[in-house]
Design a protein around this nucleic acid. Structure first.
Length: 918
RNA sequence: GCCGGGAUGGCGGAAUUGGUAGACGCGCCGGACUCAAAAUCCGGUGCUGGAGACAGUGUGAGGGUUCGAGUCCCUCUCCCGGCACCA
């Protein structure tokens, strides 16, 4: 009797069963190979969004697939619970951040459970709990003692009205998001991690990451930005500066040193400050440079401005005087806070020089090897690409360096600088040390006590954790910790005098930099991790959004190395250890614990259109796409949009990643409620390959549901039930022995099956083989369509009468269920049991294509004339080339096109095509 | 601005190494079932011309390499992500 497909009922039942039997508990000891599959943990913002559904479904597909492949799988989940949104919510709703966060976690955990993810909840971590963050405080003190954390001043965005530090995100068009006040840069003391000390290793070890996408490695390489250049010292002109000294710059183009016409310094540079003391106009300009935010994107796009300081420095090689300018695009925190300017060969310097009438001096010319030389000779009128190249050029107007190419000039000038003690070659990284202090409340307290006598003293182990008080009121005017004597009053651990506890918290990137390790030993009370980390690490498969390609992934790689170097993964010799001290074991350990993530899948963003209206003040009010009707032209292109509730137009914004701030998120709960988790999972997998950006549209969700219902109806139909009945007895399915099953089926097919039936059976294995290939290359959308194809093939088998049909359906449907199981686990588990294949589909073996069924004796060849398709023919698989050529030439269409002429050339691609060139 | 990616029917996408462009699904059109509708099932569906066989054309734009290009090379346009305090 046909039963309706009721996802709600079957999903609840299956999830209840999992809750009791806990099939997703990972074993810390196992004879099976381990497979640690990790999806990036969510920030508990309130509800799951489509990006989460996509991320976690992909991770779950991989986990279940590997379970069926016989692995001991661990798939944990937790909460990246510290962060800015909790403070914003606290202000908006008058709830303490902790309360808001824990409430969100409860909601989101339930949502994750309803998705049917195979998670090991016994390993759950919540980063805002002291039992988690105490270990990053512990690591902080170790790194502080090793000198890997140090203090220096750095600029932040300061809101002069709210008296608070703003995140870059909170600065909109140079103004504070709440106060609307013009933001200023302000220098404050902060702690920094010496990631630059690991720059070389972070760069080199990218080579070890064979399982990472090339694009991510490229981005990291460029971010680290190793460059070879020269340090150049320009002696102060004592007449104008009034004191002796040197202006230091770094350049990657020492070959153009003879073309320097001025130097530019940052507003905070000592020379700028010196000059401003006696120049009010310059002082005003420097103050202007201090306005605005810190974001690099704004720096790079803003108008370049500068002002002459009236000071001079001397050229290190010819002694000529060069004016010193203050420029808003030179930043004190980057490099030396000063640059040498070569307007003729640097595009930015060129436009700056044109703007302020500074001289442009050409010092390189294209040489004769350059095929484009002779065209576009140098002129200071407008910029041309070749001015900036390092290839195919020679020095000119450079005295003794004339005629040298890039490398020769580089070496010669570096040598001369060195001889004069005014510079030398230097390798530099773009990567800057990581400022980790945040003037915020909702984060991990920095475990430092400031003592008037002893300085900055790390909190001793026995006083850890420094607990963040959870009952607070957030006002938006600075951290509440700084107003809580019960928090900041402390005694110095060294001298016992009254001292002040640090009230800054850590960057929330810290929590996400080591959580993958904590999952291995979530309940460890006496350390960050214990020996279980050595079993589970590194993570075999990491899955997360491409937006984390640089920062999060780089910080996590860095932390892994820090943890390795404080001995958390057992005794590991440093990379510098001499060969005789290295045994195979230590070398292996060095390698396996240097990188945290063996394979990385960077999931594409789920994006959606944005809609907004502006209020009287010009502030944008974002409207959810679900509340908007889009008007399209006859070709389906959007021409306008209206808010459904009032029928009035709204502005169509960009298509961006789903976010709370732009209110363009689509709530997956609606789909789960209406169609079930299996449909939601199947659809998001089917919609696009994992790595591709997914522009959300819910048309098609219903198609996913229809397919699952067809699977259900097929299995439950009387005809199929009857057909499968005898096979259950005859085929020794419980043994899952492919050879036996395939032998039984192939023998039956030989006996009485029609060609059509054989073709359908063969086709099923062709589809399965492709699906397995796609599974390995993580292209799950085509695995989903393979499931659809196999169902169709089985449906077609059902209309063919034969004695083999029962076997084919019984075996074929088991293939379909197993292939579909990682994507739609509830329906497949239910049917697996219902049809008597076994208890647990997760422990069934992964289906492999039957090679014997794939063999065919004829192949179809494509016939082309001049590369254009003109026909097809079937030939024996082992037909020889000559015969194929003859057949092609006799083919009517080809014969007609030849019109009696001879073919110029015939190309035969065996098994594929034949191309006749006329 | 810099770094990384993307663009294929009305829509989401497929095409493993250069070898049949558009698999699979959505939508749409036609048919079956039904008093009717929904649901379901069957068939069709890139565009242009043609009753049709078929022909031409077609993978963001322009150029190139090749017997053959969605795929490789060059130039450009638009879109997306990141840019160090959103996570």
């Amino acid at each position: 009797m046909l039963q309706d497909y009721k996802p709600k009922d079957i999903e609840a039942a299956v999830q209840q069963d999992w809750k009791q039997r806990l099939p997703f508990r990972a074993e810390d000891i196992s004879s099976k190979p381990k497979y640690y599959c990790l999806s990036m943990f969510p920030y508990p913002s309130g509800k799951l969004h489509m990006g989460h559904v996509r991320n976690y479904t992909i991770g779950d597909v991989l986990s279940r697939y590997h379970s069926m492949k016989g692995c001991n799988v661990m798939q944990p989940m937790g909460w990246d619970a510290f962060g800015l949104p909790a403070e914003n919510a606290a202000m908006a709703n008058n709830v303490p951040p902790a309360e808001w966060t824990y409430a969100n976690i409860e909601v989101m955990r339930r949502q994750l459970e309803s998705l049917g993810l195979g998670l090991d909840w016994s390993r759950e971590v919540t980063t805002c709990k002291p039992e988690y963050y105490r270990w990053e405080q512990w690591l902080f003190t170790r790194l502080f003692q090793k000198g890997l954390i140090y203090k220096k001043t750095a600029s932040v965005n300061w809101d002069p009205v709210d008296h608070t530090v703003l995140a870059n995100e909170q600065v909109i068009d140079g103004r504070g998001w709440r106060s609307g006040a013009l933001v200023e840069k302000r220098d404050i003391p902060m702690y920094f991690m010496r990631i630059s000390q690991y720059a070389e290793e972070l760069l080199d070890d990218l080579e070890l990451l064979k399982g990472w996408p090339e694009q991510v490695k490229t981005m990291q390489r460029n971010w680290i930005g190793k460059s070879h250049g020269c340090e150049v010292h320009f002696p102060y002109d004592e007449a104008s500066v009034g004191l002796a000294g040197e202006l230091k710059v770094y350049t990657t183009r020492p070959d153009t040193l003879m073309g320097v016409t001025y130097v530019a310094v940052a507003a905070e540079h000592p020379l700028a400050v010196l000059a401003a003391a006696s120049n009010p106009e310059l002082e005003r300009f420097i103050a202007e440079c201090r306005r605005g935010g810190m974001a690099e994107a704004d720096m790079a796009t803003m108008e370049k401005k500068g002002m002459d300081t009236g000071l001079f420095v001397a050229h290190p090689l010819n002694g000529g005087l060069l004016p010193v300018w203050v420029a808003n695009y030179v930043l004190m925190g980057y490099g030396e806070g000063a640059v040498m300017a070569v307007p003729a060969h640097d595009e930015r310097d060129f436009s700056f020089a044109k703007k302020y009438g500074l001289p442009v001096k050409q010092v390189i010319e294209r040489n004769r090897m350059d095929s484009t030389s002779g065209i576009n000779p140098f002129t200071a009128e407008y910029w041309q690409e070749w001015y900036g190249t390092t290839e195919c050029h020679v020095c000119v107007h450079s005295g003794k360096y004339d005629g040298l190419d890039f490398q020769q000039a580089f070496d010669a000038i570096a040598a001369d600088l060195q001889a004069k003690k005014l510079g030398q070659k230097r390798t530099q990284f773009r990567l800057r040390d990581w400022g980790i202090s945040r003037q915020r409340y909702w984060g991990c307290p920095i475990p430092i006590i400031h003592c008037a006598d002893c300085g900055d003293v790390p909190v001793p182990d026995e006083q850890l954790p420094v607990i963040l008080p959870e009952q607070v009121t957030i006002t938006g005017g600075g951290s509440p910790l700084a107003k809580m004597p019960e928090f900041y009053e402390a005694t110095c651990p060294r001298c016992g005098n009254l001292a002040r506890r640090e009230t800054d918290t850590m960057d929330t990137f810290i929590e996400s930099s080591w959580y993958y390790a904590r999952y291995t030993s979530p309940d460890c009370l006496n350390g960050m991790v214990d020996e279980r980390a050595q079993y589970w690490l590194p993570v075999d498969q990491y899955v997360g959004g491409i937006e984390h390609a640089i920062l999060h992934l780089l910080y996590a790689r860095f932390f892994n190395k820090l943890m390795r170097d404080v001995g958390l993964f057992g005794e590991i010799l440093p990379a510098s250890a001499t060969q005789e001290h290295k045994t195979k074991d230590t070398e292996q350990r060095q390698k396996s614990f240097s990188e945290p993530f063996t394979n990385l899948l960077t999931q594409g963003m789920v994006i959606a259109p944005t809609f907004y209206r502006e209020d009287a003040k010009g502030k944008k009010l974002w409207i959810n796409p679900a509340e908007v009707d889009i008007e399209t032209d006859s070709r389906g292109r959007p021409v306008g949009a209206r808010l459904r509730s009032d029928g009035q137009p709204v502005v169509i914004g960009g298509t961006e990643k789903m976010s709370k701030s732009k209110n363009n998120g689509v709530d997956p709960q609606m789909i789960i409620d209406q169609y079930g988790a299996d449909t939601a999972r199947f659809f998001i997998i089917f919609a696009a390959p994992p790595e591709q950006t997914l522009e959300w549209s819910d048309s098609g969700v219903e198609g996913a549901f229809r397919f699952l219902r067809r699977v259900w109806n097929f299995a439950c139909s009387d005809q199929v039930q009857e057909e499968m009945e005898p096979s259950r007895v005859i085929i020794p399915f419980a043994s899952y022995n492919l050879e036996i099953i395939s032998e039984v089926i192939n023998a039956n097919l030989h006996e009485d099956a029609s060609d059509e039936q054989k073709a359908l059976y063969r086709e099923m294995h062709v589809v399965l083989k492709q699906a397995n290939f796609d599974m390995q290359r993580l292209q799950f959308n085509t695995v989903a369509s393979a499931c659809m194809k196999i169902l169709k093939l089985l449906e077609q088998q059902m209309v063919i009468e034969s004695s083999s049909r029962g076997f084919i359906i019984f075996f074929g449907f088991s293939i379909l269920l197993r292939l579909l199981a990682p994507i739609a686990p509830h329906i497949t588990q239910t049917l697996w049991r219902k049809l008597g294949y076994g208890e647990e589909i997760l422990s069934a073996p992964w289906p492999e294509a039957d090679e014997a069924a794939l063999i065919q004796d004829q192949v179809e060849l494509i016939i082309q004339v001049n590369g254009k398709l003109r026909g097809k023919m079937r030939v024996a698989k082992d037909a020889d080339q000559e015969m194929i050529q003859r057949m092609a030439l006799e083919y009517p269409t080809v014969d007609k096109l030849l019109a009696g002429r001879d073919a110029k050339k015939i190309i035969v691609v065996p098994g594929r095509l034949i191309n006749v060139v006329i």
